[in-house]
């Protein structure tokens, strides 16, 4: 990303004042161009006309975020597959566990035992693949924004919303299967015990929409949390690097300060971003497991 920014900075050196929120937004939002620094790949030939379903306009064109989401998916499958192959080779007794396998195994075991099973409880084995896939998929999508010319698909609200909807469907399905139709409906239609029928009916009328909102609030918070964290992190990075461009060209002295300061700060924020990439992936997976566990044990 830095390379990309500096590249543009060189192009825009004469128009330093133009560097601003427009450019920052440009790096966050989706586009049908892959900016690879020295050249860019135009994705517009892959665009398709929006499909109209009712009043909805659905544009399934392949965009920058789709490409990086695809890369994240491939990376997830490839790393997991490598780890699996290493595990398999180990099983054949050919080779002692290596670095990658050890790391992946540690993640796998942690996600399985301490995230999925610990929060979902007995019968949680069915959800282990989902939780682990969620973690790695989101992790790679997050981290891809930190490599040069990369983009963070998870800084797009629709991507995080898509993941949250999957989580929502799984959570509610798990609740329905664990509680049965009657038990599940009780999580929506709730009447406080010890009320006379009339008051109960009134409470039901008022509380049902609120319970539905409460149900939707969880995946909504999931989606917004991931989106906001990834967007904010990139904004901070971009703003710090933007300082270099803006103040670097005033005088030599201010230039040195303006380059060194934000660069060091940017480095720090970069490490912070890596941490946040892991943290947010973990939180998304963890909370999905927590919500599945909560609704399965609701009565």
């Amino acid at each position: 990303m830095d390379g990309l920014l500096l590249q543009e900075a060189a192009q825009d050196a004469a128009h330093a004042e133009e560097w601003g929120t427009d450019v920052m937004i440009h790096h966050i939002v989706d586009a049908d161009v892959l900016d690879l620094g020295f050249f860019s790949v135009d994705l517009s030939p892959l665009s398709v006309a929006p499909i109209h379903i009712g009043g909805l306009e659905i544009d399934v064109s392949i965009t920058k975020h789709v490409v990086f989401l695809f890369i994240a998916a491939v990376l997830t499958v490839v790393t997991m597959w490598l780890a699996a192959r290493a595990a398999h080779r180990l099983e054949q007794g050919e080779k002692a566990p290596g670095g990658l396998l050890n790391a992946m195994e540690a993640f796998y075991l942690f996600l399985r035992d301490d995230v999925a099973m610990a929060n979902i409880g007995s019968g949680g084995e069915r959800f282990v693949p989902l939780v682990i896939t969620l973690f790695f998929f989101i992790l790679f999508a997050n981290l891809l924004g930190l490599v040069p010319f990369g983009a963070t698909a998870t800084s797009n609200i629709m991507v995080t919303a898509g993941l949250a909807v999957i989580a929502f469907i799984v959570i509610e399905t798990a609740g329905y299967r664990a509680l049965g139709a009657k038990g599940y409906l009780r999580t929506i239609f709730y009447v406080p015990p010890g009320l006379n029928p009339w008051m109960g009916a009134v409470m039901l009328l008022i509380m049902t929409p609120v319970e539905l909102i409460g149900k939707l609030a969880k995946p909504f918070a999931l989606a917004v949390r991931l989106f906001a964290n990834m967007t904010a992190g990139h904004f901070v990075l971009l703003a710090l690097l933007g300082l270099i461009i803006t103040y670097g060209s005033f005088t030599t002295a201010s230039g040195i300060v303006a380059v060194l300061g934000p660069l060091l700060l940017g480095l720090f924020v970069m490490f912070l971003e890596i941490f946040i990439a892991f943290l947010q992936a973990f939180i998304f997976a963890m909370l999905t497991a927590v919500f599945i566990g909560l609704i399965r044990h609701a009565h």
């Binding site: 909805l56 659905i58 064109s61 392949i62 797009n156 629709m158 919303a161 898509g162």
Partner: peptide, 10 residues
């Protein structure tokens, strides 16, 4: 930007 296509891709 609320592009449902991206949600489908996700």
């Amino acid at each position: 930007s609320l592009n449902i296509g991206l949600l489908l891709w996700t």
